[in-house]
Design a binder for these strands. Structure first.
Length: 328
DNA sequence: AAGGCGGGGGG
DNA sequence: CCCCCAGCCTT
């Protein structure tokens, strides 16, 4: 058992970034911010969080909100199943928990989209429960603190670290600060590439022989490459969009066609674009097709901006089409 | 246990 | 170019 907690918390109180979504400690806000922060940098999710809270100030409003509007609010943030799970979770809270989030880690874990980290974060930060919240930062900090060089992507090693964190938890009064302090240390000092050990507040407790080489993770397998040809159909000032399948990549969002339309008046080649996802690359060529008839899937630029959730993979083509329509 | 699932920033 | 990020779910 180490005794770094006090030094860490003191450092945190003086040096942490003010994260506005954690000031009120409103469970609803903690929940939404934690979901948005999964695999996502804080700076990236902040504007999304603000917009979300303005439009959806409480759990009931999320439970009632239609999926298209939620997807639009999530557009560009990625991992869209998070958004779908938020809605499912909100409905479950309204139906089973009196419109509120449960307050124990155990109960939170049963809800859709809430795993061990998020359950621990909500329980400890919003409700002051004495439980751990182990995210990637905490894994990194502890793997260095205890010089653990095993593969942290393995369940057994993650469990081992979680046990160490559980043993390290301070009193209930300090739990919220402590969990946040571990993460903030990971985000500001104990960073992945070149850890700033020279200014680390708990350096004297750290056993890492070569901190920069920890935590150990095996190399990821190479991404698959998929070649696509995108056809952007337009008619007068409208663009044809299609809703994607409700499973798989970018499920339920909108995209462009991958087939040629009939009744083409003119075709214009667009600039190709490669979009990189975590596990696949789309190498896309694209053609703008001016069509001489219309159906209900043709939308104006304004309609698309207002309520069509178009993922980033298609944005470069959307921009080119806007430019074309604007010049016309 | 392994792989699917986004997107963007930084070395 | 690679890695990483306040992870979770499905298979």
């Amino acid at each position: 058992m180490k005794e770094f907690q006090k030094d860490l918390i003191d450092w945190y109180i003086k040096n942490h970034r003010p994260l506005e979504f954690r000031l009120k400690k409103e469970p609803y806000e903690i929940w939404i911010s934690e979901i948005m922060a999964q695999q996502t940098r804080i700076e990236a999710m902040l504007p999304y969080f603000k917009r979300w809270m303005q439009l959806l100030p409480n759990i009931e409003s999320v439970a009632k909100c239609d999926d298209e509007k939620l997807n639009k609010l999530w557009q560009g943030l990625g991992y869209y199943s998070r958004c779908k799970n938020i809605k499912k979770c909100a409905i479950e809270c309204v139906e089973k928990h009196n419109g509120k989030l449960p307050c124990t880690k155990e109960e939170l874990l049963k809800l859709p989209g809430i795993g061990p980290y998020t359950a621990g974060a909500i329980a400890s930060i919003a409700y002051g429960q004495r439980v751990s919240a182990v995210d990637g930062n905490v894994i990194r900090v502890f793997s260095r603190l205890y010089d653990i060089y095993e593969d942290v992507t393995k369940t057994s090693v993650k469990k081992q670290i979680e046990m160490l964190v559980d043993e390290s938890l301070p009193s209930k009064e300090e739990i919220s600060y402590y969990n946040q302090a571990l993460m903030e240390l990971g985000a500001l000092i104990c960073i992945p590439k070149s850890p700033r050990c020279d200014i680390c507040p708990i350096k004297k407790y750290c056993e890492a022989s070569d901190p920069a080489s920890l935590p150990y993770k095996p190399k990821k397998s190479a991404r698959k490459i998929e070649y696509k040809h995108v056809y952007v159909w337009i008619h007068q000032n409208k663009v044809h969009v299609v809703k994607r399948a409700d499973t798989g990549l970018l499920a339920g969002l909108y995209g462009f066609d991958e087939t040629k339309p009939e009744h083409i008046i003119e075709s214009i080649e667009l600039k190709p674009y490669i979009h990189i996802f975590s596990h696949v690359e789309w190498h896309m060529d694209a053609t703008l097709c001016i069509v001489d008839r219309e159906d209900s899937n043709y939308k104006t630029i304004e309609e698309i901006e207002e309520y069509i959730a178009l993922p980033s993979a298609f944005m470069p083509f959307m921009k080119q089409v806007e430019e074309y329509l604007w010049k016309k």
